[in-house]
Measured scan of single mutants.
Amino acid sequence: MNLTVNGKPSTVDGAESLNVTELLSALKVAQAEYVTVELNGEVLEREAFDATTVKDGDAVEFLY
């Protein structure tokens, strides 16, 4: 899956889609429990991480 992460191209191997929690784990995001996630310009509530799917071509920003 090809994404733009914090403005840079990134690839997650072996996945066509992941939820936000899985993406944080796959990318080994440090202190993931404290990060705010913006997906395609929309800031996500932490409670929505498990239910929100990240797909090929999406833009993700991790805000600390």
Rank of each mutant, 00 (worst) to 15 (best):
residue 1 M to S: 01
residue 1 M to Y: 04
residue 2 N to G: 06
residue 2 N to R: 14
residue 2 N to W: 10
residue 3 L to F: 07
residue 3 L to A: 03
residue 3 L to H: 03
residue 3 L to G: 02
residue 3 L to D: 02
residue 4 T to P: 02
residue 4 T to G: 04
residue 4 T to W: 10
residue 4 T to L: 13
residue 5 V to Q: 03
residue 5 V to H: 02
residue 5 V to E: 02
residue 5 V to I: 13
residue 6 N to T: 02
residue 6 N to C: 13
residue 6 N to A: 04
residue 6 N to P: 02
residue 7 G to P: 02
residue 7 G to N: 05
residue 7 G to Y: 03
residue 8 K to Q: 11
residue 8 K to H: 10
residue 8 K to S: 08
residue 8 K to F: 10
residue 8 K to D: 06
residue 9 P to R: 10
residue 10 S to D: 06
residue 10 S to N: 09
residue 11 T to D: 04
residue 11 T to G: 06
residue 11 T to R: 15
residue 11 T to Y: 15
residue 12 V to K: 02
residue 12 V to P: 03
residue 12 V to I: 14
residue 12 V to Y: 08
residue 13 D to P: 14
residue 13 D to E: 14
residue 13 D to H: 15
residue 14 G to H: 09
residue 14 G to C: 11
residue 14 G to A: 09
residue 14 G to Q: 07
residue 14 G to F: 13
residue 14 G to K: 07
residue 15 A to K: 12
residue 15 A to G: 09
residue 15 A to V: 15
residue 15 A to H: 13
residue 15 A to R: 13
residue 15 A to F: 14
residue 16 E to P: 10
residue 16 E to F: 14
residue 16 E to L: 13
residue 16 E to Q: 13
residue 17 S to G: 08
residue 17 S to C: 11
residue 18 L to I: 09
residue 18 L to K: 04
residue 19 N to M: 06
residue 19 N to V: 05
residue 19 N to T: 15
residue 19 N to Y: 06
residue 20 V to Q: 00
residue 20 V to C: 04
residue 21 T to E: 05
residue 21 T to P: 02
residue 21 T to K: 08
residue 22 E to Q: 13
residue 22 E to P: 00
residue 22 E to G: 08
residue 23 L to F: 03
residue 23 L to Q: 00
residue 23 L to Y: 00
residue 23 L to M: 05
residue 23 L to K: 00
residue 24 L to H: 01
residue 24 L to I: 09
residue 24 L to M: 09
residue 24 L to S: 00
residue 24 L to A: 00
residue 24 L to N: 01
residue 25 S to Q: 14
residue 25 S to P: 01
residue 25 S to R: 15
residue 26 A to R: 14
residue 26 A to T: 08
residue 26 A to Y: 15
residue 26 A to F: 14
residue 27 L to A: 02
residue 27 L to N: 01
residue 27 L to G: 01
residue 27 L to K: 00
residue 27 L to R: 00
residue 27 L to H: 03
residue 28 K to Y: 06
residue 29 V to C: 12
residue 29 V to Q: 04
residue 29 V to T: 05
residue 30 A to I: 11
residue 30 A to L: 10
residue 31 Q to F: 15
residue 31 Q to I: 10
residue 31 Q to R: 12
residue 31 Q to Y: 15
residue 31 Q to M: 14
residue 31 Q to T: 07
residue 32 A to H: 11
residue 32 A to K: 10
residue 32 A to Q: 11
residue 32 A to R: 10
residue 32 A to S: 12
residue 32 A to I: 13
residue 33 E to W: 10
residue 34 Y to E: 08
residue 34 Y to P: 05
residue 34 Y to Q: 09
residue 34 Y to W: 13
residue 34 Y to C: 15
residue 35 V to E: 03
residue 35 V to H: 05
residue 35 V to I: 10
residue 35 V to C: 09
residue 36 T to R: 09
residue 36 T to I: 14
residue 36 T to Q: 10
residue 36 T to Y: 08
residue 36 T to W: 09
residue 36 T to N: 07
residue 36 T to P: 02
residue 37 V to Q: 00
residue 37 V to N: 00
residue 37 V to R: 00
residue 38 E to C: 15
residue 38 E to V: 15
residue 38 E to F: 15
residue 38 E to I: 15
residue 39 L to H: 04
residue 39 L to D: 00
residue 39 L to C: 04
residue 39 L to Q: 00
residue 39 L to K: 02
residue 40 N to R: 01
residue 40 N to E: 01
residue 40 N to Q: 02
residue 41 G to P: 01
residue 41 G to H: 05
residue 41 G to W: 04
residue 42 E to M: 14
residue 42 E to S: 11
residue 42 E to W: 07
residue 42 E to I: 15
residue 43 V to T: 09
residue 43 V to P: 08
residue 43 V to L: 11
residue 44 L to K: 04
residue 44 L to S: 00
residue 44 L to Q: 02
residue 45 E to I: 09
residue 45 E to V: 09
residue 45 E to G: 10
residue 45 E to R: 12
residue 45 E to D: 13
residue 45 E to T: 10
residue 46 R to G: 04
residue 46 R to W: 07
residue 46 R to Y: 07
residue 47 E to W: 12
residue 47 E to G: 12
residue 47 E to I: 09
residue 47 E to T: 11
residue 47 E to Q: 10
residue 48 A to P: 00
residue 48 A to Y: 12
residue 48 A to C: 13
residue 48 A to H: 11
residue 49 F to P: 01
residue 49 F to R: 03
residue 49 F to Q: 04
residue 49 F to G: 03
residue 50 D to Y: 06
residue 51 A to T: 15
residue 51 A to I: 14
residue 51 A to M: 13
residue 52 T to L: 05
residue 52 T to D: 00
residue 52 T to H: 06
residue 52 T to G: 01
residue 52 T to I: 11
residue 52 T to A: 06
residue 53 T to V: 13
residue 53 T to Q: 12
residue 54 V to R: 00
residue 54 V to M: 04
residue 54 V to I: 10
residue 55 K to H: 11
residue 55 K to V: 09
residue 55 K to F: 09
residue 55 K to T: 08
residue 56 D to C: 06
residue 56 D to E: 09
residue 56 D to K: 05
residue 57 G to Q: 05
residue 58 D to P: 01
residue 58 D to T: 03
residue 58 D to W: 03
residue 58 D to H: 03
residue 59 A to C: 14
residue 59 A to Y: 13
residue 59 A to H: 13
residue 59 A to E: 13
residue 60 V to M: 05
residue 60 V to N: 02
residue 60 V to H: 02
residue 60 V to I: 13
residue 60 V to T: 02
residue 61 E to R: 15
residue 61 E to A: 08
residue 61 E to H: 10
residue 61 E to F: 11
residue 61 E to G: 05
residue 61 E to Y: 13
residue 61 E to D: 14
residue 61 E to M: 10
residue 61 E to K: 14
residue 62 F to K: 03
residue 62 F to Y: 07
residue 62 F to L: 13
residue 62 F to A: 02
residue 62 F to I: 15
residue 63 L to H: 15
residue 63 L to M: 11
residue 63 L to T: 14
residue 64 Y to C: 13
residue 64 Y to T: 12
residue 64 Y to V: 12
residue 64 Y to M: 09
residue 64 Y to D: 12
